[in-house]
Write a protein that binds this DNA or RNA. Structure first.
Length: 190
DNA sequence: CAAGAGATCATCT
DNA sequence: GATGATCTCTTGA
C-alpha cells in the first residue's frame, strides 16, 4: 500500500447505499487466502436498500441469513445462490437499517505472494458468481468485518472514473420485485 | 444469434 | 418441499 492508498473503513459504508455503490467503482478489492493475495478493480455494483426494497433479501424481515444486513456497516454478507455461486455484498447504512451493496464485476485481476509483485490473471471476473470463484471468496467470510485482519478489504488507490464513464441501469435478476425492479440502482464502468 | 434447461444447496415456509 | 441478486452449455431458427 503506497501513501496515497486509503483503506475503506465502516465510515465509508455508513452512508446511503446508492452513494456507496456508486463510489465503490474504481476501488480495489483485496483477498488474502492460502498465502496468496488477490486484487482487482471494482467495475460493477448494485444497491439493495432498506426493508421496503422488495428486491432486497431483507424485505422478508430479519432472519438468520439477513440479520447481518441489519448489523454494522462494513460487514461482509455472502450467501450461496442456486446452490453453486457465492454472492459478495458489503453492508451499508447505520446499524438496524438493512442494506448492502452487491459486487457484480471486477477487472484487472492480479495475484501476489509477497504484496509487492503482482501478476495478471486472465480469468473472467465479469459477473458476481465469476468474481467470487476467481478470488476464491466463499461463505467463510460471511458476517466478518471488511478489514485486512479478516483477509478481505477494499482500498481507495486514487483511481479516478470520470462521471461520463459511469452507467446506471436496472438491477439484474429481480423481476419478482414489483415496482422496485426498475430502480436504476445498478452502477457500472463502461 | 436467442431461448431454455440444468447444476445443486442453504435458507425459509 | 420450493426457491433463487448465476453461469454455461445445448438447441434451433
Amino acid at each position: 500500500m503506497n501513501q496515497k492508498s486509503i483503506l475503506l473503513t465502516p465510515e465509508f459504508f455508513i452512508r446511503d447505499t446508492r452513494l456507496v455503490a456508486r463510489e465503490l467503482l474504481g476501488k480495489v478489492i483485496y483477498h488474502r487466502i492460502n498465502k496468496k493475495v488477490y486484487k482487482a478493480i471494482i467495475t460493477e455494483t448494485e444497491a439493495y436498500h432498506g426493508a421496503g426494497d422488495l428486491a432486497c433479501h431483507c424485505s422478508k424481515g430479519k432472519t438468520k441469513r439477513t440479520s447481518v444486513m441489519f448489523d454494522h456497516p462494513g460487514l461482509i454478507y455472502i450467501y450461496l445462490i442456486y446452490g453453486i455461486y457465492y454472492m459478495l455484498n458489503i453492508v451499508t447504512m447505520p446499524k438496524n437499517f438493512p442494506a448492502a451493496v452487491l459486487i457484480r464485476a471486477v477487472k484487472n485481476l492480479q495475484v501476489s505472494f509477497d504484496m509487492k509483485k503482482f501478476e495478471k490473471i486472465n480469468h473472467p471476473t465479469d459477473g458476481p458468481g465469476k468474481l467470487t470463484k476467481q478470488l476464491q471468496i466463499d461463505g467463510r467470510l460471511n458476517n466478518k468485518l471488511l478489514t485486512p485482519n479478516t483477509g478481505l478489504w477494499v482500498v481507495d488507490e486514487g483511481i479516478e472514473i470520470p462521471a461520463d464513464k459511469i452507467q446506471t441501469g436496472k438491477r439484474i435478476g429481480i423481476d419478482y420485485a414489483g415496482k422496485w425492479k426498475d430502480k436504476p440502482w445498478r452502477f457500472y464502468y463502461k
